[in-house]
């Protein structure tokens, strides 16, 4: 018997190819150039880096609304540390360590409150995002702090290797690490198990609170890394750095097939989602759509893309009625 081709598996690459074709037709001169493609990837690299850690939180069925302001806070921390060390190379190393530490600490706080007190992740991270924003405002004194600082710092965001800037490689490396952990280690499989059915995971001896704790720490660290790269790319920081990134990252994840209910989604899918967002922003800029109207086009494209993807998976959707709904009854979000 001939094996049936599972078209559902290809819906995401199909959307991506359709995007590239449409943009190539609309802007044949400016879109399909190596410089522009490299630009698109450069602009999505911060989202890509962040989503690689935040996907762990989504997989265990949680959510992290604080990543936008945490990204800003870690950008502020690295810039302030570099200035404190008098713009030296050592200051950059110390700044990176400090920012990553802040990210990890944020993850520890989230993990502790969410797992020990069984508080909805939505509320905890909503509250901490306000705290992180306040801390950034205190540290920057509500001013823009520029950092044209040592070459080592600007290299993180700007230096090119083989025609592509370093953030793209950072994104690729963290994506591979995150993919490997999720796909090839028991640890990763436990993450899927917890999100898929927490009660069953617990009964089969998986330490669900410990792993959920770790998921938030990963999210914090990857967000801090995103903040470091962002600070270097823009060579400045302010309290509003990273604001709104939480929605972009969550959108990227969901477009990429990550379920906010937990237990579903892959790293390549999430990166795919980030690239789609990047292509969208790029296309809108190339076609000089005013930024106030980006929301309209983006909203319609997101609805169309996710609905198309949902259509491909309709068989599964019919099996479990609430497959595509947020916050299924199996757990508190």
């Amino acid at each position: 018997m001939k094996k049936k081709i599972q078209w559902g598996k290809f819906s995401k690459p199909m959307i991506l190819v359709a995007f590239v074709i449409i943009l190539t037709i609309l802007r044949p001169d400016s879109f399909p150039t190596l410089g522009n493609i490299s630009n698109v990837l450069w602009s999505v690299s911060v989202y890509g880096i962040m989503v690689c850690g935040t996907i762990f939180v989504f997989l265990v069925g949680g959510i992290d609304l604080s990543i936008g302001s945490l990204c800003g806070l870690s950008a502020v921390v690295i810039v302030k540390t570099i200035h404190a060390f008098g713009d030296t190379e050592g200051g950059v190393a110390a700044g990176i360590m400090a920012a990553l530490l802040v990210g990890a600490l944020a993850g520890v706080i989230h993990g502790f409150v969410i797992t020990k007190f069984k508080v909805p992740a939505f509320l905890v991270t909503f509250a901490t995002s306000s705290i992180f924003l306040g801390l950034s405002m205190v540290l920057t004194n509500n001013k823009i702090i520029s950092c044209l600082g040592p070459d080592l710092f600007t290299a993180i965001g700007m230096m090119k290797i083989l025609g592509f800037p370093i953030p793209i490689y950072v994104m690729l490396i963290i994506a591979i690490v995150s993919w490997f952990v999720l796909r090839k280690t028991p640890f990763g499989r436990y993450m899927y198990a917890i999100g898929g059915n927490p009660a069953a995971a617990r009964l089969s001896g998986i330490n669900d609170t410990g792993l959920t704790f770790l998921a938030y720490i990963f999210s914090g660290i990857s967000t801090a890394l995103g903040g470091i790269v962002l600070a270097s790319m823009t060579q400045q920081c302010m309290a509003s750095t990273g604001s709104g990134y939480e929605t972009e990252v969550i959108t990227a994840a969901v477009i990429g097939g990550v379920s906010l209910l937990g237990g579903e989604g892959t790293v390549p899918g999430a990166i795919f989602g980030a690239v789609i967002i990047g292509l969208l922003n790029n296309g809108l800029n190339l076609m000089s759509v005013p930024s106030t109207e980006h929301g309209l086009v983006k909203g319609i494209v997101i609805i169309a893309a996710v609905a198309f993807d949902a259509l491909q998976h309709q068989d599964q959707a019919k099996k479990g009625f609430s497959f595509f709904s947020f916050g299924k009854s199996k757990k508190t979000a």
């Binding site: 309209l296 996710v306 959707a317």
Partner: peptide, 23 residues
């Protein structure tokens, strides 16, 4: 009807309504 996850659906319409307001 389109079976989108609520979070992403209303995130998208959030952008749409804001853009329409600007329009």
């Amino acid at each position: 009807r389109l079976h989108l996850p609520e979070f992403i659906a209303t995130l998208a319409t959030m952008g749409i309504y804001r853009a329409l307001t600007y329009a």
